[in-house]
Simulated scan of single mutants.
Amino acid sequence: MTTQPNPDMIPQETHIGQTALRVNDLEEITKFYRDVVGLSVQRRSDTSSVLGAGETPLLVLENDEDALERHRSGAGLFHNAFRVPSREALGDALARIRDLWQLGGASDHGVSEALYLTDPEGNGIEIYRDYPREDWPRRDDGRIRMGTYPLDLDPVEAAAAGDSGLPAGTNMGHLHLEMSSLEAFSDFYVDTLGFEVQTEAPAALFVGAGGYHHHIAANTWNHRTGPISGRGLSWFEVLVPDEESLDAVRGRLIASDIPLTESDDGFVVHDPDEIEIRIRVDSSTQ
């Protein structure tokens, strides 16, 4: 018997598109993401920069010299996570960070190996590569079992190929948020948008589509109590595969009395901590 997909579940092809940061110093932050992270500058104006890998835009920097530093109580970004396609690319990222910046940490999560750093305005960054999906550890109930273990950097360093930028095939693998309530996060991202819970950790929840270990994570480790404000995360995209999927998500939001605003290629909605989410059809699949 064929199992029918759950109509309230977001499609398995769903993934994160671009994310945007509100920054005080556009010149400095553009240079950082170009030289240290390894993104290429695809478009640039006096008010914004668009950076990416290959032909794919991944990060938008919005200049706002008057934006205040994020309030310590406010929700927002924990880190943007750039997923690279190989250990060689991860080794090259490690070399750039060591040469030009400071490595904040490195972890083996059982499903991936990850490097961590922070940009000059305090925004968290993860650069990581996944292990083969069939090797991801799972619990008895089938959920993914992620952990945080020391990462041996020697083989990562040895794999470096000497490339100065992130290769084509790099994407925004996931987004990790700081939220004021995991219950409200789950109500919105799981019960309404339709992501699936993949795993949990103390004061953290990891949700994804299509069995991926997580496209969006949330934590309450720093006890945020207020909505997003100030510099830092401005908005992010959730890309669905087709118009039918977009209509289904729109319908669930309307049924839950959650306001949305139509846009040229989808719609905009805000989560419980007022984080802006732009939901649209993935144009690369059309």
Results as ranks from 00 to 15, higher is better:
1 M>K: 14
6 N>I: 04
8 D>C: 11
8 D>P: 00
16 I>T: 09
16 I>F: 06
17 G>Y: 03
17 G>H: 03
18 Q>H: 10
22 R>E: 11
25 D>E: 11
26 L>M: 09
34 R>T: 09
35 D>K: 09
37 V>G: 05
39 L>N: 01
43 R>T: 13
43 R>W: 07
44 R>E: 14
52 G>R: 00
55 E>V: 06
56 T>P: 00
58 L>H: 05
59 L>V: 06
63 N>F: 08
63 N>T: 09
65 E>R: 12
67 A>C: 11
69 E>C: 08
71 H>M: 12
72 R>S: 12
75 A>G: 05
75 A>C: 14
76 G>N: 07
78 F>T: 05
79 H>Y: 09
89 A>R: 01
93 A>T: 06
94 L>W: 06
95 A>P: 05
101 W>M: 04
107 S>G: 08
111 V>F: 08
118 T>K: 09
121 E>Y: 06
124 G>D: 02
125 I>W: 01
127 I>K: 01
131 Y>A: 11
132 P>K: 10
132 P>C: 13
141 D>K: 03
145 R>L: 12
147 G>F: 14
154 D>R: 12
164 S>A: 15
167 P>Q: 12
167 P>L: 14
172 M>V: 15
190 V>H: 13
191 D>K: 14
193 L>Y: 03
196 E>S: 14
198 Q>F: 03
200 E>D: 11
203 A>S: 12
203 A>Q: 15
208 G>R: 01
217 A>K: 01
222 N>A: 12
222 N>W: 07
227 P>A: 13
229 S>F: 07
230 G>M: 04
233 L>I: 08
240 V>I: 15
244 E>A: 14
249 V>N: 01
253 L>I: 05
256 S>W: 00
257 D>V: 01
258 I>R: 02
259 P>S: 10
261 T>W: 08
268 V>M: 11
270 H>C: 13
273 D>P: 00
275 I>R: 04
279 I>P: 00
286 Q>Y: 11
